[in-house]
Write a protein that binds this DNA or RNA. Sequence first.
RNA 1: GCUCACAUAGCUCAGAUGGUAGAGCACAUCCUUGGUAAGGAUGAGGUCAUCGGUUCAAUUCCGAUUGUGAGCUCCA
Length: 638
Amino acid sequence: MALVKIELPDGSLREVAAGSTPYDIALSIGEGLARQSIAARFEDRLVDMSTALECSGRLALITQNAPEALEVLRHSSAHLMAHAVKSLYGDDVQVTIGPSIDTGFYYDFFSEKKTFAPEDFEAIEKKMAELAKQDLPITREEMSSAEAIELFRAMGENYKVELIEDLGETRVSLYRQGDFVDLCRGPHVPRTGLLKVYKLISVAGAYWRGSEKNAMLQRIYATAFSDKKQLKAHLARLEEAKKRDHRKLGRELDLFSFNEEAGAGLVIWHPKGALLRSLIEDFERKEHLKRGYDLVVGPQILKTELWKISGHYENYRENMYFTEVDEQGYGIKPMNCLAHMLVYKTKIRSYRDLPQRYFELGMVHRHEKSGVLHGLMRVRGFTQDDAHIICRPDQIDAEVKAVMQFVRDVAGIFGFEYCMELSTRPEKAIGSDADWEAATSALRSALDDSGQAYEVNEGDGAFYGPKIDVKLKDALDREWQCATIQCDFTMPERFDLTYVGADGEKHRPVMLHRVIVGSIERFIGILIEHYAGNFPLWISPVQAVVVNVTDKQAEYVKKVEAQLREAGIRVHADLRNEKLGFKIREAQMNKTPYMLVVGDREMEEGQVAPRFRDGTSLDPMTVEEFIRFAAEEVKSFH
RNA sequence: GCUCACAUAGCUCAGAUGGUAGAGCACAUCCUUGGUAAGGAUGAGGUCAUCGGUUCAAUUCCGAUUGUGAGCUCCA
């Protein structure tokens, strides 16, 4: 019998008969290990415990607690769920696919008769537990695609048939547990008994193969872990995320609202929210001026003809709002670039004048599909911190790097981690190869120099140029695009932007579209969740509330309020006829950074007694001392 | 836009097999002047999202619309 050499992670070598399985090897090490291992890694491939090893190689057993175990566990849990659904609803339901995802797994089902609802979860979970308890062996088998197609067709599993047909493989693998069989690459845990900790989360629609042209399937989201504690922690995280939800906090902190009669996706900013945004806008203007940008302002509507020249009418029409007055059509701007180019075109520009950096906090309107609207994160009217840098091709590199540094600075001030993506030339693209090459390498080198990891999305760029996207995460770990840098060769062409070069000839500049926080609305949504509503002092709409202990201090409190306001502190006095504890509680629930308590003692000494929103407090200090103290804190942020 | 679900007081939520509705918080008035997360009493508040249909009768059943949620697709 042929022998193969298996190298284990500790470097030891074992000679075993060819065709031995990871299970055999685990068993030879110890029964406990064999029982606890759910899969194995052979060379760089994940394999089943029952996979026959026919050649020499490195083998690592994956026990329940190994990092890779979770993916296998969840994938197997998806099968278990599909198994349960099939045995409960049988022929009414067809299975499709069910992968593991970051937070658990899902399985997509097709059914014309059965509509899944959360009320079904208990029954499905119960069935899953039953099937797990039977400890069914999960076995892999291979067969020719033709045989597999026949098998699934006989079962009425048309989606599986389609999958196999499209795979185009000669042989496919199937996994079987009891009377359930699924097309699958694997690997899987060896027995259903290993699947113990799972929970169904939600049900939602999803298109077959992700295309809106295809049938709508029913997706059941669920999660699975190797132990109950982790599941509990995961559910607790979801709870915490709910508490941080910017839609909930936005209402509780009285920042903004939406109104059914005003229209979906249109933000109504309340006094505190409007103050918060203007603080961020002030910050933005200051930071842009610091970095050599010029402030410009364009009109809210521009003639339809201009949108035809820009190509928006052709490519972006469905997302735009149009209006007509005096038989003249106008389009409400969905982007700010047009006016910026018109600023550029008012003069003849020399190569010495470049780059021109035009910055605008521009309010744009886009008719987003109704189903995508989501609090402040996805709205129909929003304000971009938008700039267009019109520069010579040889300046792209430096400009892109400066923008990246800008993004880094701002992310640092707010304490964000972020991830970046580079999107390259799509199939349908305009512009010369040399232009694309120059622009893409400029973006790439800026990314490389940033020292931060980034993903490359080949072919995902805009038709007019490549782009860098920066994504921030919300409380539920959903990623939202904020900053983006896009290279554009088209607009300068379409609008015939030129500059006079050193040679006296006209040349075509390049335009960089870029935003730093993206949309002020979205950014505030993310900020609310990031800080859980506890805004740092410098952007807190209300920085301090002065509370009196009894009516006796009312006059003094008003004086203190005036004094603080004079010093630029955003303050209000709470003189209501309520007990101190009541007012403290309310200020704390409003997440006010400082509560300044004033009783007879403070009044006599010309002091206030500061208390933080975390419940700790400082010794009483004079009003002047507090003003200095608060100013120091504000200054420390940026 | 698509699938499913939901819409009751400012907010969070009860409620009936079809006979026009409640709680807590918030709000108002009064009492209370109380030192760091809720003092007490009384009161006001709803065409049960909108429009249509079925019915003797609809907030409840059906349909459409609007809005919201989870997700898909798309995007800042």
